[in-house]
């Protein structure tokens, strides 16, 4: 379970911390207070389940274990495509990096 978030420069949020997250969390607040931004951030975070390696040229050590977005979410949408559409953008061809889910066995339905 995610228990806290620390945010740096995500959408309208320059920085922020949210703690004490529980099994069920209700976000309320005025318009443009970051409710949907938090949902989107959790969405991206939750879908970042594809293992990869982050290679950095200038930082030691140069290889880090990392994860990046899976190709499809639970409803079978491509995550970045979905969020980009939500915000009135077109989907660019560079957004597609199709991965065979069955091969990767990333789709873990409960």
């Amino acid at each position: 379970m995610i228990q806290s978030l620390t945010i740096h420069h995500f959408r309208g949020i320059r920085e922020g911390v949210i703690k004490n997250l529980r099994a069920i969390n209700v976000l309320i607040g005025p318009n443009n207070s970051g409710k949907s931004a938090l949902l989107e951030l959790l969405y991206l975070g939750g879908l970042s389940r594809r293992t990869c390696q982050l290679i950095t040229e200038t930082i030691e050590p140069p290889v880090h274990a990392a994860t990046t977005l899976v190709a499809r979410d639970f409803l079978s949408y491509a995550p970045t495509e979905r969020l980009r559409r939500r915000h009135g953008y077109a989907v660019r061809e560079t957004d597609f990096f199709l991965i065979d889910l069955d091969k990767e066995q990333l789709r873990e339905y409960p």
Partner: peptide, 11 residues
């Protein structure tokens, strides 16, 4: 900044 970058209420 595109209005679609704002919250849904503002859009």
């Amino acid at each position: 900044l595109g209005i679609d970058q704002f919250g849904d209420g503002a859009r």
